[in-house]
Simulated scan of single mutants.
Amino acid sequence: MSTIFRKIVRGELPCYKIAEDSQFMAFLDVNPNTKGHTLCIPKKEVDKLFDLEEGAYQELMRFSRKVALALEKTVPCKRVGMAVVGLEVPHAHVHLIPLNSMDDMNFSNKYHMEDEEFKELAKSVHVNL
């Protein structure tokens, strides 16, 4: 199974990358709920979050926390929320969503961004890995 996320990890598809290490990658969601909506994924293709090995799960949460802290410093928001849905792409992933209201967690609401805005935002988020 080769998902869109696997193709992003392999460099076959472009993304607005925020952070990357040997095991994980974070990039802006191209269909965001809010400005700064980011996806954190393991590079290893695993369908469901809870199918990750215990250590990989804990490391993904640690990685996601670092990305969330960087987002909170970059994108004006009250806090960064986290969601795991897992139905859109069969590859484990965590949504980090800058929040100013509960409506920002509604996946039916979308925030429009142009390519330049995505690029500028991706460059401005500095994650301390």
Rank of each mutant, 00 (worst) to 15 (best):
D104E: 10
K66W: 01
I4V: 15
E114M: 04
R10P: 00
V9S: 02
K73Y: 02
L121H: 03
L99I: 14
H93E: 10
V127Y: 01
S108M: 11
G86L: 09
L52P: 14
L69K: 12
E20W: 02
L96P: 10
P14N: 01
V46W: 05
L28A: 12
E117D: 09
L69Y: 08
V125N: 00
A68Q: 07
A122G: 06
M1H: 11
R10V: 01
M61T: 12
L96R: 07
Q58S: 14
S108T: 14
S64C: 02
G36N: 11
R10A: 15
M102L: 15
F24R: 04
L129V: 02
C15Q: 09
F50Q: 11
F27I: 10
I97E: 07
A70Q: 04
H126G: 01
Q23A: 12
A68E: 07
T3M: 02
A70Y: 04
G36M: 08
F118K: 04
N33V: 12
K44R: 15
V80E: 06
A19M: 01
K78I: 09
V127L: 02
K7Q: 14
D104H: 11
A26T: 01
M105R: 05
Y57G: 08
A26S: 10
D21G: 07
K17A: 04
P32R: 09
E114G: 12
R79G: 07
G11K: 09
E117G: 01
N109M: 07
D104I: 11
E53M: 05
F27L: 12
E45G: 06
H37L: 10
S2Y: 03
F24L: 05
D115S: 06
G81Q: 05
M82C: 13
K73W: 05
P32L: 08
V30A: 10
R6D: 14
K43G: 09
Y16V: 06
V80A: 00
K119P: 00
L99W: 04
H95E: 10
L129A: 05
P14R: 00
V125S: 00
S64A: 15
K48V: 12
K78H: 14
K110R: 15
F107Q: 13
A68H: 10
L52Q: 10
A92L: 08
L129S: 07
K119C: 03
N33G: 05
L28K: 08
R65Q: 14
C15D: 10
C15S: 15
E117I: 05
T74S: 06
P42N: 08
L99C: 15
H91S: 12
A83K: 13
G55S: 13
V127D: 03
E45F: 00
F118I: 00
M61S: 03
I8R: 04
N100R: 11
D21P: 04
V85S: 06
R65Y: 13
K66A: 13
H95F: 08
L60F: 04
K43H: 13
K123M: 07
K7M: 06
C77K: 04
N109Y: 07
G36A: 11
A92H: 08
L60T: 07
